[in-house]
Design a protein around this nucleic acid. Structure first.
Lengths: 157, 157
DNA sequence: ACAGTTTACATAGCGTGCTATACACGTAAC
DNA sequence: GTTACGTGTATAGCACGCTATGTAAACTGT
């Protein structure tokens, strides 16, 4: 029975993403960092002490996802959430001292993996790849909102 | 505060994969199919009535993941697991009549999304993209096994 | 001032992946 | 034939994403 191996683009894409996450995870684990934390760390290393809302505006995940990620990061001693007296609805999220010092090691791990993945590829290969991925991402973003727009068009004045 | 938007390749990749899954999901939902079922369906449409082990050998997921996926598919009335009298350790997995008829509609949904995503891209763009992704995937696969090989090298005779 | 809305965040429940471990059945060795 | 090992599958527990919904604080209009 010669079954053609999985040719569905989606499955190949999923596999690629999962392998990337696994390799990242094994490099970050010794630092107590999970791949899902990267976006938050990356932002806070640039601008520490912001609200969840601010973070959410630049991170491409849903609010509930971010809320849960922050909870795990707090549990793992990477961030703290200090209540804001001015407006008790939001808290200020800041890096713990330990997390603040982690940047070079995390960046090293990321760079190391990037180099591994890029083995055998030229600079223009990578650029081309990212450009196409970006373009496809935009198509998907408009695909998600399409039904909404269609509905809006149908609303009478 | 002009924060440069998320430039980590891993995060862009994750976003792309998640958007793809979301778009797929919205197209498959009316059929009672989830994206995670696609690999199983795709195989069984070609060769129905196999063991979990066989499926596992061609699907790039862990055994435990497949086991859980099959449980959900059984719950959703897509497959049945009939006990094997010869060897009671494994069951024979087969499509339900309903699942067997679903192929054209699922393929239609996949093709539809593919067309959407490919908007504005040439055939050679897609081929190039897939080739690079494939190459990176192979690098990641060898990355995962590297530590093992290194250890093996260190084992004295 | 207080009723209703909006805002910021948390929680519930689920899909899909992972690792580690349990378990039941089959096989082989003694 | 029991002991030991191997095989096939299931389960436990977690990461990380989603949608839908809850909740408390702030704001707004009358």
């Amino acid at each position: 029975m010669h079954y053609e191996p999985d040719t569905l683009f989606f499955n190949q894409l999923s596999l690629f993403q999962r392998l990337y996450a696994r390799s990242l995870s094994s490099r970050l684990a010794p630092l107590g960092v999970h791949p899902g934390y990267l976006g938050v760390l990356h932002y806070l290393w640039q601008a520490d002490g912001v609200t969840q809302k601010t973070l959410n505006q630049v991170m491409a995940v849903e609010q509930a996802t971010l809320s849960n990620t922050l909870k795990r990061m707090e549990r793992d001693g990477l961030i703290s959430r200090t209540p804001n007296a001015e407006d008790k609805r939001h808290h200020i999220i800041s890096l713990t001292p330990r997390a603040a010092t982690l940047k070079p090691q995390v960046m090293q791990a990321i760079g190391d993996l990037r180099a591994t993945v890029n083995t055998g590829l030229t600079v223009s290969d990578r650029r081309y790849f990212k450009r196409i991925m970006h373009q496809m991402t935009e198509q998907l973003e408009s695909d998600q909102s399409d039904p909404l727009f269609l509905l809006l068009d149908e609303i009478p004045e």
